[in-house]
Amino acid sequence: MRALLVVNPKATTTSERSRDVLVRALRSEVDLQVEYTLRRGHATALAREAAERGVDVVVTLGGDGTVNEAANGLMTSAPALAGVAGPPAYRLPALAVVPGGSTNVFARALGLPRDWADGTSVILDGLRDGRHRVIGLGRADDRYFTFCAGVGVDAAVVRRVEQARRRGHTSTPALYIRSMIGQFFSGEDRKTPPLAVERPGEETQTELSMVVVQNTAPWTYLGDRPINPLPDASFDRGLDMLAIRQLYVPSTARTVTQIASRKGDPHGKQVLKLHDQAEFTVLASRPQPFQLDGDYLGERQKVHFVSVPEALRVIC
């Protein structure tokens, strides 16, 4: 069995020593090639090339951004795009994820351990036993995502967090909470919601302030606590969507409290939820922040979301 290990050398929870241990462990089971990412988007190119060489497994060591790039590389490779009947999961290398970032939402949503060493043990057992899970992905225009996407306030918070990290701040739950509060009280979208959601054959929903899309549950984590606004979202179904209408202080505070509770599942007049959607389009009257899997990707005025069933095989 041939495998490619894609390592993000800036992964926050691993060291050079732990990477060496991982490499030795994988080499005991597979014919392993190791590549280190050098820039944003490099993991996409590496995974795409591996799929086109016929590698059996692509392993990532990094955070959710590295996983997202690898998934995009696999899904845009020649085997995935070949005009062959059947879902791409069975034409592509399997994906294995060793958690190495600060949050690791995708790995945790799959039930993998947070610790990289324990995660490696699960992957090794899966490789020996031939164990895997077939999952669906989401696609936003031409970019795939594994667990979430956002347009509007949600993505603006991600942008604030990334800016703070570039200034040397550590990614912590407190940083996200401060960024969310700062965005809420500074954003113009409180008064003039710019977003709308179009669905085939359905009435357009307008005057929305933010849109969150989930491909699985939870949406994210604050430390050990899952944040679960759409608890029925699943890798095995279509996309789920949560939209907030007007960002009035009392109703927004109530919605945030509901989202942060252990039950999640917010509700009320200012909340719009859609479940198990094959496709929909988010439109904006002015450019809005946009994020996929926790990475800020600039501003958009239109994003077409599609559910892609049976997209990947994941070792877990």
Rank of each mutant, 00 (worst) to 15 (best):
A243K: 01
T44M: 12
T44Y: 08
E69Y: 05
G111Y: 02
N72A: 02
P193Q: 00
V271W: 12
M1L: 05
G111N: 03
A51P: 09
G119W: 00
Q33N: 00
R133W: 03
D129C: 10
G101M: 03
V314E: 03
A260E: 05
G111S: 03
A117V: 12
R160H: 10
P93S: 13
D31P: 04
R91A: 10
H267R: 14
L242R: 09
H275D: 11
L92W: 11
A85M: 06
T103D: 00
V57A: 06
A117M: 13
F184W: 14
A50N: 12
L61W: 07
R262D: 15
R167Y: 06
D189N: 07
Q33R: 13
P88W: 09
A71D: 05
G101D: 05
T281L: 01
D236Q: 15
M210W: 03
P9T: 12
N104W: 02
L222A: 15
V58S: 11
G201Y: 08
S251G: 02
L222P: 09
A149M: 05
S102T: 15
G168A: 11
L61N: 08
L81M: 15
G182P: 00
V306E: 14
F185G: 00
V98M: 14
L208A: 10
K263D: 00
S102C: 03
L274D: 03
E207I: 02
S209I: 05
V213W: 04
Q205M: 13
D240R: 09
S261L: 11
L230M: 14
G238W: 12
L26T: 01
L124E: 06
Q277N: 03
S179R: 04
G268V: 13
Q288M: 15
V67H: 01
Q258L: 02
V303T: 00
Y90W: 08
R143M: 06
N72W: 01
G150W: 00
S209Y: 03
G100P: 04
L38T: 13
A94G: 11
V303C: 00
T76N: 14
H132I: 03
V84A: 09
E188N: 04
M1I: 03
A80E: 07
V30C: 13
T146Q: 10
D240A: 15
Q205N: 02
L222D: 08
G264K: 11
R166M: 10
W116P: 10
E198V: 14
Q163R: 14
A140N: 12
G126M: 09
R262K: 12
E198W: 12
I135Y: 06
V213Y: 04
V84R: 13
F147K: 10
A78K: 14
A109G: 04
Q33Y: 00
A155N: 08
Q291Y: 01
D276P: 01
R254S: 12
Q258I: 01
R27V: 08
D154V: 02
T172A: 02
A25Y: 05
G63V: 09
L297A: 04
A233E: 12
T252W: 11
P250H: 04
F290S: 08
R178I: 07
V84L: 08
G201F: 12
P287H: 06
K10D: 05
M241G: 07
F290L: 11
R165E: 13
G187F: 05
Q291V: 02
E279S: 15
A155Y: 11
L312K: 08
E188M: 02
A140I: 08
V84P: 01
E29Q: 00
L61M: 14
P226D: 07
T170Q: 14
R167L: 14
I123T: 13
V161W: 07
K302L: 01
E162L: 03
A82E: 13
